[in-house]
């Protein structure tokens, strides 16, 4: 009989809890990537996460790190307060697109502009998930949601906001990258990006934000399989992947 080796296990950075996320949602994948990175960089035991309001509001139950639960959109302000007093600790915010790009726009822009040395994981699925699929600032033109049932009319609601592009216009150094997690190859790239972001923080370099394009089959009203295709064909086309900004002297 051969020895059985464990080749795939729950990372130490996640708690042994079943998440509440819908089938086909990629929050679980993103949680795992962050948890793996924290362990691989040896940061888990000195990390504090800040959970948002939205689908990932219960993120604090899933990460094996200390956590604060923020008001809607204010995670960057909490992270600023914490990190300023404890620069020796690793602080990250985990925020959705309604949280970060709508109600929390002021907090994220000013935290980035001050160069706060924490990391933001920005999950963009182009819709408000928790409240049942309303229009977000990132909802694509023509996309149908509960509050734009005839499709997003950009003449009335403007164009979707591209957050990493917007933040990359600030003069303050930062690490900004957009990735996706709808295929294995994209997941590998996303993990590299998240690792780079936390390395920036570990080395006390700069603010870092990784925007992750994510699926929401429940509120997009399609199957998980169709959702990955829709992300690839539509979301990725409007929100191009890539590194938008890196601090000087960093590979």
């Amino acid at each position: 009989m051969q020895d059985i080796n464990t080749t795939f296990a729950r990372p130490e950075g996640l708690t042994d809890v079943v998440t509440h996320y819908c089938p086909g949602c990629t929050h679980g994948v993103i949680h795992r990537l962050v948890a793996e990175v924290l362990v691989e960089l040896g940061l888990r035991e000195r990390t504090v996460g800040v959970a948002p309001v939205g689908c990932s509001v219960l993120a604090y139950n899933y990460f094996n790190t200390d956590f604060l639960e923020s008001p809607h959109g204010r995670a960057p302000a909490l992270a600023t307060g914490f990190k300023r007093l404890r620069p020796d600790m690793i602080v990250f915010t985990y925020q959705g697109d309604g949280d970060l790009a709508s109600i929390g726009m002021a907090e994220i822009v000013h935290a980035a502009n001050r160069g706060e040395k924490f990391t933001t994981i920005f999950v963009n699925n182009a819709i408000y998930g928790m409240t049942g699929g309303q229009m977000a600032p990132t909802t694509l033109p023509g996309q149908v949601t509960a509050t734009c049932p005839f499709g997003r009319d950009t003449a009335l609601t403007g164009m979707p906001i591209r957050m990493v592009e917007l933040l990359s216009s600030l003069a303050t150094p930062a690490y900004l990258e957009r990735v996706a997690v709808h295929s294995p190859a994209h997941i590998v790239r996303a993990k590299k990006a998240i690792k780079t972001a936390f390395t920036c923080q570990k080395e006390e370099r700069c603010f870092s934000l990784i925007e992750v394009l994510s699926t929401c089959p429940t509120n997009w009203g399609i199957t998980p399989g169709e959702a990955t295709q829709w992300l690839d064909a539509n979301l990725k086309a409007f929100f191009p992947l890539g590194v938008y900004k890196r601090p000087e002297g960093m590979q």
Binding site: A77, L78, G81, L85
Partner: peptide, 9 residues
């Protein structure tokens, strides 16, 4: 909210 984060320390 900065107070909130800072007080958590």
């Amino acid at each position: 909210n900065m107070l909130f984060g800072a007080a958590s320390t």
